[in-house]
Amino acid sequence: MSITLTEKAASRVKSFIEKRGKGVGLRLGVRTSGCSGLAYTLEFVDEIADDDSTFDSNGVTVVVDPKSMPMLDGTVLDYVREGLNEGFKFTNPNAKESCGCGESFKV
């Protein structure tokens, strides 16, 4: 089981956490909602729960809750620019179909 951050994503996360002044890592998760069933969540982590899985990827502690883990296994998180917009992009081998805008998906 693993989740990886690209080098670019990791360096952005590190600088965001540094700028924020607190935080021990990055939480990836999945929750139900959206037009196609499931949606990603991406949050700063102040506290790691006992049943969370943690990974180290390029120096960033990645935290995932047990319910989200099976749906995120193998995911690669990248930081990209698209036109004027920039942000994090999930590449998830478990996702079978996603809605037009890609914000929600099905496994």
Binding site: G29, G34, L42, E43, E103
Partner: peptide, 17 residues
């Protein structure tokens, strides 16, 4: 694929919101 930003703990927005 939409691009995401990191939210504060527990404050992830629902998709399209």
């Amino acid at each position: 694929m939409a691009l995401l930003q990191i939210a504060e703990p527990g404050l992830s927005a629902a998709p399209h919101q």
